[in-house]
């Protein structure tokens, strides 16, 4: 069984990934909607920037976050002025790293789902007297729900596994930023901790596999050949 300390790591990881994904869902959906439906100059560039964390070395993403959120950085400066605090070395910073790294996967899943909504149904709703807002609320959004859930679960799994950007951005502080992957990494540095490594690794596998399966099942429920895996 897991020790109290290990349970603490699992709980912290779930909290960080959970908060990260909860905050990222509306942002990812807005971006997905913009990319699926929008027509504007520079769309390719927005698409590219959204996908950047997927292909950039995570250590570079972490470093860029560090530059932005440092007390004298453009974002950190504002956060310090408003809250008087910082996200560096804090679990909130770890959640930001997890959210940024999960964003491209979430946008992809949501975008596919929005693109698979039959525009002719939206036209039918318009002829029945529904304005654009009501069409979005009653047709587009509900028909995109499987993709939104699939994207959220996939992003949650990605957030749980976040390592490189997190350790670069908010370091490896036990009880604050030390999530599952970071705890496993730390244990690997200590001779004689193989048992703890195996336990934490098994928890990781179980959580990630569970999230992937749930996300795929949600996507299949949407039908129309929509897949996450």
């Amino acid at each position: 069984m897991l020790s109290a300390e290990q349970w603490g790591v699992v709980a912290l990881s779930l909290k960080i990934a959970g908060v990260a994904i909860g905050v990222t869902i509306p942002i990812a959906f807005a971006l997905a909607y913009l990319l699926a439906r929008g027509r504007f100059p520079g769309k390719v560039l927005v698409d590219g920037i959204v996908h950047l964390p997927l292909v950039l070395p995570p250590v570079v993403t972490g470093w860029l976050l560090l530059l932005a959120f440092a007390p004298d950085g453009p974002v950190g400066h504002v956060i310090e002025a408003v809250t008087g605090g910082t996200v560096l070395f804090r679990w909130t910073g770890a959640a930001i790293a997890a959210g940024v790294m999960a964003l491209p996967l979430m946008v992809r899943a949501m975008r596919l789902s929005i693109e698979s909504v039959d525009r002719r149904l939206e036209q039918a709703a318009r002829t029945l007297g529904a304005g654009p807002g009501r069409v979005f609320r009653t047709i587009t959004l509900p028909l995109s729900v499987p993709g939104i859930l699939a994207g959220a679960v996939l992003g949650f799994a990605r957030g749980l596994g976040e390592f490189g950007a997190t350790i670069t951005f908010v370091s490896n502080v036990p009880g604050e930023t030390q999530t599952l992957p970071l705890a496993i990494y730390s244990k690997l540095q200590v001779p004689g901790s193989e048992h703890a490594v195996v336990q934490l690794a098994l928890v990781s596998v179980a959580l990630s596999l569970g999230a992937l399966v749930v996300s795929e099942l949600l996507a299949r429920r949407a039908g129309r050949g929509f897949h996450v895996l």
């Binding site: 039959d118 039918a124 002829t127 007297g129 529904a130």
Partner: peptide, 20 residues
């Protein structure tokens, strides 16, 4: 005039029922 304000009853070639 916007589609939703035209008070049109449009029966499309395919039924276009809302599946959800």
């Amino acid at each position: 005039v916007a589609v939703e304000k035209r008070r049109v009853g449009y029966v499309f070639q395919d039924p276009r029922l809302f599946p959800h």
